[in-house]
């Protein structure tokens, strides 16, 4: 299958290994990955902070860039959530019904990574090998906007060597919330403290999730504590093999 990668601005600029892992994984499964070089950002930060007028050109651009492809994948529940639940809304707020329709068309063929693997490609065992103790944090948008349910866990359970431990209070938000982490830094930090406590209680070596943004938040807190747990994106674990491990 020919799959267009929407790498997301965060992975592009700050976490390129997540993009590379997504490419490696999908190619290993026998698919062709293309990277539309004109892509930038879905505009979620603008939308969620209240700047819908500034988000409008980003929505228009994203829709134009991805309209030609049949299947689009992003290693982010949050960005796919924005494409699926917000793009048409932004267009309608600015009375652009045509853009809203086209945005909905793009949304209908845009998948978060675990959705693409399990629902579209029908695969749970991706042939990965990752001999580490891992705990999984279901990010809010993948859980409650996309309803990915246990798809990421099904993928992780099939990874050879991986010791998967349940995260207590897993469905509680880590406190990131985009600009919430800055505008309400104290409340965000209080939420992060509980998330970190739960992660550390698992004694996992790696905390994983489907969103680089939440991982940046949890990982930034763990790093500050010099805790012995690192964060890795789900794609990085699924891309890992005997030969190449992150």
């Amino acid at each position: 299958m020919r799959i267009a990668l929407f790498v997301t601005c965060l992975a592009d600029g700050l976490f390129p290994d997540v993009g590379k892992a997504t490419v490696t994984l999908l190619e290993r499964l026998g698919h062709e990955v293309v990277f539309p070089a004109a892509q930038t950002c879905c505009g979620q930060m603008h939308i969620n902070t209240g700047y819908q007028a500034d988000a409008l050109p980003l929505v228009r651009h994203h829709t134009e860039v991805f309209a030609p492809y049949d299947v689009v994948v992003a290693p982010s529940g949050s960005c796919v959530g924005s494409v699926r639940h917000q793009h048409a809304m932004v267009a309608r707020r600015h009375d652009d019904e045509l853009l809203a329709t086209r945005a909905d068309e793009v949304a209908a063929k845009t998948y978060e990574l675990s959705e693409l693997l399990v629902d579209v490609l029908g695969v749970e065992d991706v042939g990965a090998y990752f001999p580490h103790r891992v705990t999984y944090h279901p990010t809010c948008h993948s859980l409650r906007l996309l309803r990915v349910d246990d798809k990421p866990l099904r993928l992780l359970r099939k990874v050879r060597g991986l010791d998967l431990v349940d995260l207590p209070d897993a469905d509680q938000c880590c406190g990131f919330g985009g600009t919430f982490a800055v505008k309400n830094a104290d409340t965000s930090t209080a939420m992060l403290a509980d998330k970190m406590r739960n992660v550390l209680d698992t004694q996992a070596e790696v905390a994983t999730a489907g969103d680089s943004s939440c991982l940046m938040h949890i990982g930034g807190g763990l790093s500050r504590l010099r805790a012995g747990t690192r964060t890795l994106h789900l794609a990085e674990i699924l891309a890992s093999t005997d030969e190449a491990a992150p």
């Binding site: 992975a11 982490a181 930090t189 500050r224």
Partner: peptide, 16 residues
């Protein structure tokens, strides 16, 4: 507000 309680990642040498 971010760096008060969390480290921030260093931009990589090469973007995706």
């Amino acid at each position: 507000g971010w760096s008060g309680s969390r480290d921030a990642p260093v931009p990589p040498k090469e973007t995706f």
